[in-house]
């Protein structure tokens, strides 16, 4: 009996863990570099940028949900990082947290600098956002947000340097 209980508990833990890891898996990212200029995006860069952007969103979702600013270090830098750190700090002080369900991003490269050290990307993101005060959901809504993103190369990855939502389209569209 005791052994069966232990087995059941192990299965339950595994189930919860798998659910958690699924929630934290990196989102799907489509990447279009056809409109990039003045420099055309290299093959390797067109693989690493969407990969790193997906990891950035995975870390961002987890950081905002768990109020852990340290998770931003890996893929955020500059103004994007300092803004998000400030938000997470305020969330923690107010007892708030924000949970994103990420339904994917469509990236469209608008500008790639001649020297290859700056990329401006438009991100058409489909998200669901829940704002929670403690354990209570105070706001829950689907979002269709367009972000203007600046990414710059780091030592071994592309980092999000600026992440700014733009007015259109409106949420829920």
């Amino acid at each position: 009996m005791k052994r069966s209980l232990r087995l059941l508990l192990a299965v339950a833990v595994l189930f919860v863990a798998s659910g958690y890891s699924a929630a934290q898996s990196s989102p799907s990212v489509e990447f279009n570099a056809a409109n990039a200029g003045p420099r055309s995006v290299e093959d390797l860069t067109s693989q690493t940028v969407p990969r790193d952007y997906a990891f950035a969103w995975q870390n961002l979702s987890q950081a905002l949900d768990e109020n852990r600013p340290g998770l931003l270090d890996a893929y955020f830098t500059g103004f994007a990082k300092s803004s998000l750190e400030q938000r997470i700090k305020q969330q923690a002080q107010s007892g708030l947290h924000v949970r994103y369900t990420d339904h994917g991003h469509k990236l469209n490269v608008l500008f790639y600098s001649p020297n290859g050290d700056l990329m401006q990307i438009e991100d058409d993101a489909q998200l669901e956002m829940q704002i929670l005060d403690g354990g209570k959901v105070i706001q829950s809504q689907p979002l269709h947000v367009r972000f203007m993103v600046l990414m710059t190369p780091g030592a071994d990855r592309w980092m999000v340097r600026d992440l700014e939502s733009t007015p259109a389209p409106r949420s829920g569209e």
Binding site: S82, S83, L84, Q86, R87, I88, Q90, Q91, S94, G95, L96, V98, I131, D133, I138, Q139, L163, E164, S165
Partner: peptide, 13 residues
Amino acid sequence: GTFYLIGPATAEK
């Protein structure tokens, strides 16, 4: 009541 303001660098209550 309670007022919340959530923005890119803000989470106020």
